[in-house]
Each structure stands twice: as C-alpha cells, then as structure tokens.
Simulated scan of single mutants.
Amino acid sequence: MNTVRQTRAGAIAIWIFVLTPFLGLLAAGPIAWGWGLTTLDVIMFVIGYAVTGFGVTAGYHRYLTHGSFKANRSLRIALAVAGSMAVEGSPIQWVANHRRHHAYSDRDGDPHSPWRYGTSVLAVLKGLCFAHIGWMFRGELSNRARFAPDLAGDRDMQVVDKLTGPLVAVSLLTPALIGGLVTGTWAGALSGFFWAGLVRMAILHHVTWSVNSICHVVGERPFVTKDKATNFWPLAILSLGESWHNSHHADPTGARHGVLRGQIDPSARLIWIFEKFGWVRDVRWPKPERLTAKRVATSPAS
C-alpha cells in the first residue's frame, strides 16, 4: 500500500502553513515600504534560511532519504532538527514521500509529478500547479512503514518526529524573540517574526516545491534518467544545489548534485566540510566513470 489517509488536523496544518506565508508575501511590499528591512532582519533571515535549508537538502534529502553519507549521532539528530524547522513536515514523513517519488518518478504512484494530466500546454500548466502545491491537499500521506521503515524504527528519529510541532514554533518565534530583545520594542519583534520567520519560511517552501514542479518540466537533461527530471540553473543557489535535479535522478545516492563544471552546489560543499571535520564518513562522491556512462550521447559536430 503506497499511501495512508491524512488526518483532519494534518490537512488543517497544511492549509495554515501554506496560506499564511503566502499572505505574508503579498503584504511584504507594503510593509517594506512603511518600515523597511533592518540589518538584524536580514542577518536572521540569512542564518535561518541557511540552517533550515541545509536541514532539508543535506539532512532530510541527501542523508536521511538517500544515505549519501554516514553521520555521527549528534550531527544526525542536528540535521533532522534543522530540517524539521523548515516547516516542510516531520523527517520520517518527508523521507517516505520523497522515496515514493523516486520509486515512481513521473509515473502512476508519484506523489507530485507535473505530467499526471498529459502533455498539452493546459495539461502541463495544471500539472505544474499540482506538483508545486496541489499534491499536498489530496489528503494522502506516503506509507511510512513501506517507504521509510529504517527511520520509523529509529528511536532518535521517532523523538524528532514527535517534536516537529514545537520545533516549528521555535523556528518561527525565535526571530521575534531576538528582534524584540535586541530592539527593545514590539515593532522589532514583529519585524523579526515577519521577515526572518514567515517570509523566510515561505521562500524556502516555494524553492523546495519548485524542484518538484519546475525541475521536472523546464531545464536541461544532460544525463539519462527514467523520468523527466531537469537541471534548472537559476535556482541553484536558492535551492542550495537541489535544482541540479537531472543529475540527482541519474545518481540518486550521490552526495553532490552539481556534478558538471560550473554547477554550484552549496549542500555538497557543506557535506565536504563535515567530512573534513570527521563528522561524516563514507561519503558517496560522484565517480567519473559512472557519470560518463550516464551522459546523454551527443552528435559529433558537423
């Protein structure tokens, strides 16, 4: 069985955490015009985006989902906590969803393929909306027991999973607390909550969802895969290297997704730093011979 029914509380939570940041983005312009961004807001935004973003990319995705490296227990827990603070779901559920995506990528069973409605312009546009955000409202959750049995049976991950709610609160309220304490005003607290809390979360959400949608429709496909995953360079930095999606689908367990010359991959660099400090081991760096075997054949120049 691929899916289980989502609880009513889970569905309500999705609506809250999708619509609230979106409304925040709509209000961003008028608020910025009236208040402006402070240096403190920017610093908290960048730090918050990096911590939670890498928690998803290096933690949830490359480590917990694909086992691209092995980490010591402290880092393992830290990455799961950081990923939970991105407000994209608990680690076990996120991993189950993504493993299911790889198992059925762009075929029946894929939880968020943009090609589910067909290949006409209208069908693809509808599919993009579904892959970007619509799939979360279907009321289905990928079966943890089938797709993430290793994490479901891991006590540390069980604890982090149960603490997802409080960690979300910490993620959103910490910037407000810092802003209030540093400025000594409610305005500083509200500004920190808005820019480094809601807006930061919303941007990271849409960047992550864009990998599900845009990176299966628009971009280059230099490697052979069984689906339509693409490399989309404009998102490389914001996605912390995740938008090299064709490369990833060609070699899912690879620790580096930006494998070609000039492809920036901040998450791979972070994993490299962890390796240098001795916090991770057995990193699955790309092998030249494997990449060569997966490259799309090109016609010789005439």
Rank of each mutant, 00 (worst) to 15 (best):
R116W: 01
Y117Q: 09
S120C: 06
V121P: 07
V121T: 13
L122I: 14
V124C: 11
L125Y: 02
L125F: 08
K126Y: 04
G127I: 13
L128T: 09
C129W: 13
H132D: 07
I133K: 00
G134L: 03
W135D: 00
W135R: 00
M136T: 00
F137S: 10
G139N: 12
G139W: 12
L141Y: 06
S142E: 12
R144F: 06
R146Y: 00
R146I: 15
F147H: 11
A148D: 11
A148P: 10
P149F: 04
L151I: 10
A152W: 11
G153W: 07
D154F: 11
R155I: 14
M157L: 14
M157H: 03
Q158C: 07
Q158N: 15
Q158M: 12
D161G: 09
L163D: 12
A169G: 09
A169E: 05
V170L: 15
L172I: 13
L172P: 13
L172A: 13
A176N: 04
A176T: 04
L177M: 08
L177V: 14
G179M: 01
G180M: 11
V182C: 06
T183Q: 10
T183P: 10
T183D: 13
G188Y: 05
A189N: 09
L190P: 06
L190V: 11
S191L: 02
G192P: 05
F193Q: 07
W195K: 04
A196R: 03
V199T: 05
M201C: 15
A202Y: 05
L204H: 15
H205C: 07
H206A: 04
V207K: 06
S210W: 00
S210R: 00
V211N: 04
V211H: 06
N212P: 03
I214F: 01
C215G: 08
H216I: 12
H216F: 08
H216C: 10
V217H: 04
V217E: 03
V218C: 02
E220Y: 07
E220N: 01
R221S: 06
P222E: 08
F223L: 07
F223P: 01
T225W: 02
T225V: 10
K226F: 02
K226N: 12
T230I: 01
T230N: 05
F232Q: 06
W233D: 12
L235M: 06
L235A: 05
A236V: 02
A236F: 02
I237W: 14
I237A: 11
S239D: 05
L240P: 02
L240V: 01
G241L: 06
S243Q: 08
W244E: 03
S247M: 03
H248Q: 00
H248M: 03
H249D: 04
A255C: 02
R256V: 04
H257A: 02
